[in-house]
């Protein structure tokens, strides 16, 4: 019943592919064409990442631009044993988080009211009911995907970001804790709460299916 896929980051840690090696060497040599190849290849997936974190098109594009500049400047630090895509991914996450930090801190609502409630004897106050449709079926329809997206966006920002970095980008917990400057314990609590809060937001739609 249980699946290990939630246990840890599934980021590929495989070594650079042979074709990447050549590209990295050309990048290090300052080859203009190599930089363009890098951009053509990685711009789209990186934009998806920064969009998910920032939820603002303009900021997301700026973050991608900054990520490429940062990557090009620090290509000397790139470890040839790692994957270029993993490395670029981390840089883009950093650039997006930097922008997030600069944003004016809005007073954040807490997620308490979206967490499950219990009776004095430890039982759930309201019984949970299974969801009607399979995840696959829900994902088929654009309308219900938009609904899920809307619910994610309704989470308070610090919870949303934890959810994105851990459950979507699948960065390892220690990396996320460090980037967000919170303890690992705090991160654990936040992720669990974020998932529970999102579950609550989805529940009324999923019970009856959309």
């Amino acid at each position: 019943m249980l699946e290990t896929r939630y246990a840890y980051s599934m980021q590929p840690v495989a070594a650079a592919r042979p074709d990447e090696r050549g590209l990295v060497e050309r990048l290090r040599a300052g080859d203009e064409r190599a930089f363009e190849e890098l951009v053509d290849h990685h711009a789209a997936p990186l934009l998806a990442v920064t969009r998910r974190i920032l939820r603002d098109e303009e900021e997301a594009r700026d973050a991608v631009q900054e990520a490429f500049v940062a990557a090009f400047r620090s290509i000397g630090d790139f470890q040839i044993e790692s994957r270029l895509s993993t490395w670029m991914h981390r840089i883009a996450v950093n650039c997006a988080l930097m922008k997030l930090r600069v944003r004016e801190r809005r007073r954040e609502k807490d997620v308490d009211e979206l967490l499950p409630h219990f009776q004095a004897d430890g039982h759930q106050q309201q019984s949970s009911v299974g969801w009607k449709e399979s995840v696959e079926d829900v994902l088929q329809r654009e309308q219900s995907r938009a609904l899920v997206r809307e619910c994610i966006d309704r989470l308070p920002e610090s919870y949303r970001v934890v959810l994105v970095l851990r459950d979507i980008e699948q960065l390892p917990p220690d990396v996320v804790a460090e980037k967000l400057q919170i303890t690992r314990d705090n991160l654990k609590v936040k992720l669990h709460r974020a998932r529970q809060a999102l579950r609550t937001l989805l529940d009324p739609h999923m019970r009856g299916a959309t």
């Binding site: 995840v135 994902l139 998932r195 999102l198 989805l202």
Partner: peptide, 8 residues
């Protein structure tokens, strides 16, 4: 919920 987040 986790699967939906990732799937979307």
């Amino acid at each position: 919920t986790i699967d939906l987040v990732r799937g979307v």
